[in-house]
């Protein structure tokens, strides 16, 4: 069974962390992954940097730009991750925009992920209908889980379609925003979380965008299986460096 599905079956709320590969320094990728696992993180999204990240706010944009400036490429990331499964057991997901994956070749990319032990992909600008028509078979051939986003504006009908195409979890975007722009959840977000929880979807939901501390993590996981922290962790890396990951995780749970 795919490590993502295994993790989702565990009787606990999942804390997942996103960071941009190659940030703050080109060769920090593996150390950050190992430290996150050591500190009890359940799942990691490794950001494949892109020059034009449309869905990201200033924090992730800046880390992505810095990573590219440091020399990160798709091939270098794969080289860095080559032996990652010798030391890391938790599910690993690559999150990246579609163009770099398209240039690498979608099938080649999936094949490489499978060989390394990457369990899933999140590609925000690959629409679910294009995936279902053109790429689903390829992903399944290599056992790669594809994760789709939903937002407060997504219709019930479309959520049900996304649920039917999903084979891992659904990434619930907490509010209408790019990454890193929220500070705390109010009634609007909570009622959206509750509405989705009550849809009884087959796929578990993990909430992202706007999770930055213990409070927002607890609010999100009251309704969902887990939550993803991105910008807040990258801010922590920028301010405190890569040596204080334990401190960051302890403050969340």
């Amino acid at each position: 069974m795919n490590r993502i599905n295994q993790k989702l079956q565990e009787d606990k709320k999942i804390l997942s962390i996103y960071f941009s590969a190659g940030y703050p320094n080109l060769n920090d990728t593996v150390q950050i992954i190992q430290d996150l696992e050591k500190n009890g993180i359940d799942m990691i999204e490794i950001g494949l940097p892109f020059s034009d990240p449309l869905a990201d706010g200033p924090t992730i944009q800046a880390s992505s730009t810095q990573a590219l400036h440091n020399g990160m490429t798709t091939q270098i990331l794969f080289d860095q991750l080559e032996n990652i499964r010798e030391s890391v057991k938790i599910p690993l997901i690559i999150m990246g925009y579609f163009n770099p994956i398209l240039q690498y070749g979608v099938e080649e990319f999936c094949k490489k992920c499978a060989a390394i032990g990457i369990d899933g992909l999140i590609i925000p600008d690959l629409p679910v209908d294009v995936y279902a028509e053109q790429y689903k078979e390829t992903f399944e051939k290599y056992g790669i889980i594809n994760v789709f986003l939903i937002t407060p504006q997504t219709s019930d009908e479309r959520i049900e379609f996304i649920d039917s195409v999903s084979n891992g979890f659904i990434y619930m975007v907490s509010s209408a925003s790019v990454t890193g722009s929220q500070s705390g959840f109010g009634n609007t977000e909570e009622s959206y979380f509750e509405r989705i929880a009550n849809m009884n979807l087959k796929s578990p939901q993990v909430i992202g965008f706007g999770i930055s501390n213990k409070e927002t993590f607890n609010q999100a996981t009251k309704f969902a299986k887990g939550a993803i922290i991105g910008s807040a962790f990258i801010k922590h890396l920028s301010e405190k460096g890569t040596g204080n990951i334990a401190e960051f995780v302890k403050a969340i749970r």
Binding site: L54, P124, D125, P127, S177
Partner: peptide, 10 residues
């Protein structure tokens, strides 16, 4: 086509 994040879909 329309290669857009889900946030823009509606």
């Amino acid at each position: 086509g329309a290669y857009i994040p889900e946030m823009l879909y509606p």
